[in-house]
């Protein structure tokens, strides 16, 4: 690993000031992504600013029944907190189905939202990769792309976003609160994740030194019966081939409210808005679910080894909606 400077800070302001003042520095929270990528030579900071002492670990209800989660709350604490398991089961499940117990004990929620793709060409530090070295090309387009995205891709990048929790968060319209050199702001989570487009190296609309301080999840009537399904080769400790966060509210046989998001198939945690629009107000039938799922995947750009994700994602959506309608997992 490259030589590193290290400093530990205890307030948000000093953290932001420290990183903001030094273009070669970055925040260190749980380290599960950052330490790994530094060792691989993919991430190349000179200085780590350790933010683990910041008071950003709360998990609490907001006044309107939503959630406020501190950026440094650990995945395992959030997953098991009663506020989350009771009102937002899909979020709890998405966290528990991610990584391993050890990693969940380490990884922070803010870090989870920012985790980097597992694309092997990105991680190997030598292959052409527009995300790692802009302008060098994308090795995955015609390479081993079984794990890659079919939605939100561009000719510059098809790397999958690996977060599970992010998928539940986009389904629930979470809001990311940040503090940066230019002050504090709130970013709707769907805007927090950028599509790769022509600049896959830019993944979030954050300026250097801007720190996630918390995540707010607004209340949603259907959230209490939400669920998260994750499908993968292994039964644990693996990123998703396809995952689905789903919540559905049916009144008199018609879809009154539906939230649907996909993991494993998108370059960002993928809110399935096409399917939601198709379903809302219509009948809650298996055929309607299948039609909506197919509609969601219509813009998909499958590649040689990941074409299976298109039918798999559709079937997973139908299953998730059916189970959510029948009262959860």
């Amino acid at each position: 690993m490259r030589p590193l400077g290290y400093t530990r800070v205890s307030t948000v302001d000093t953290a932001v000031a420290a990183v903001g003042a030094d273009a070669t520095s970055t925040f260190l929270a749980g380290g599960t992504t950052e330490v790994d990528l530094i060792r691989l030579g993919v991430s190349r900071p000179d200085v780590l600013v350790d933010i683990n002492s910041l008071p950003l670990k709360e998990i609490a209800y907001t006044n309107d029944g939503g959630l406020r989660i501190g950026a440094l709350a650990r995945m395992s604490d959030v997953a098991r907190s009663p506020e989350v398991t009771y009102n937002f089961p899909a979020l709890s499940q998405s966290l528990l189905l991610g990584a391993s117990e050890q990693l969940r004990n380490m990884a922070s929620m803010g870090g989870n939202l920012c985790q980097r793709t597992r694309c092997a060409y990105f991680r190997d530090a030598v292959s052409p990769c527009n995300k790692r070295e802009p302008g060098t090309g994308c090795s995955a387009l015609d390479g081993l792309n079984r794990g890659h995205a079919v939605l939100g891709t561009s000719e510059q990048c098809i790397a999958t976003h690996p977060s599970d929790a992010g998928v539940a968060m986009v389904a629930f319209d979470a809001i990311v609160h940040t503090v940066g050199p230019s002050g504090a702001r709130s970013i709707p989570i769907d805007d927090f994740y950028l599509l790769p487009g022509a600049s896959p190296d830019v993944e979030h609309p954050l300026e250097h030194g801007e720190l996630i301080v918390g995540i707010e999840v607004p209340p949603a009537p259907s959230a209490r019966r939400s669920l998260y399904l994750k499908f993968r080769d292994r039964q644990s400790y693996e990123f998703a081939l396809v995952s689905v966060a789903a919540a559905i509210e049916v009144r008199e046989g018609r879809v009154a409210d539906v939230r649907l998001a996909l993991g494993g198939v998108g370059t960002k945690p993928w809110r399935a808005r096409r399917a939601e629009v198709a379903l809302t107000g219509g009948p809650a039938t298996p055929q309607a679910f299948a039609n909506a799922a197919a509609h969601e995947l219509e813009p998909a750009s499958p590649r040689r080894y990941n074409a299976f994700k298109v039918p798999m994602a559709q079937r997973a959506m139908v299953r998730a909606l059916t189970r959510a309608m029948n009262g959860g997992a």
Binding site: Y6, L28, G31, T32, S76, Q102, L103, N105, M106
Partner: peptide, 18 residues
């Protein structure tokens, strides 16, 4: 796997200085 403050974590992704 070791414990930091009693919780299992991965020592390979933890910096000693932290």
């Amino acid at each position: 796997t070791v414990w930091v403050q009693g919780r299992p974590v991965l020592a390979c992704l933890t910096l000693a200085v932290a």
